[in-house]
Amino acid sequence: MASVSASHLILFIASMMIAASVAGVFTNSIGQLSGALSEQGLDVSSDVRTDVEIISDSGSDAIYDNNGNGNITLLIKNTGTETLAVDPGVMDILVNGQFATTYEVSRVEGSGSWRQGEVVRVEIDPPQDSLNGDVRVQVTINGDEEVLEFRA
């Protein structure tokens, strides 16, 4: 009779251990999934909140500096509700389809982060040696794509 209770006890302990490990793996996986979901939610909400406008006057011939340093100067206004950083890392720039790697971002007046209604100046050193004719610049910030076309 004692051998029956001993084996019952062993089976009970084994089943509890298995159930506990299953429960542990289960809660751990759900914890990771919830963390990822929260981060994704934050990312999507900041993508939705981000809205910028390129306010440079494309009709003027002052966007591309033909005679000077050959830079393209863009003025970009934050019209969304997301506060952005004044940092080249927040944006990706394509000039005539080519990825621009050298550009500087600065606030036109004041300092600090780039809040709603404020304007930054972006000085782009184009990846092409020289630009002629129609130029298309695309700026992508948090998934918001803005295009400016002008004549060089």
Partner: peptide
Amino acid sequence: FYTATANSFEQINDA
């Protein structure tokens, strides 16, 4: 899971 989903949903809805 419910907390994470509800929070994300609310944030995206607000945005």
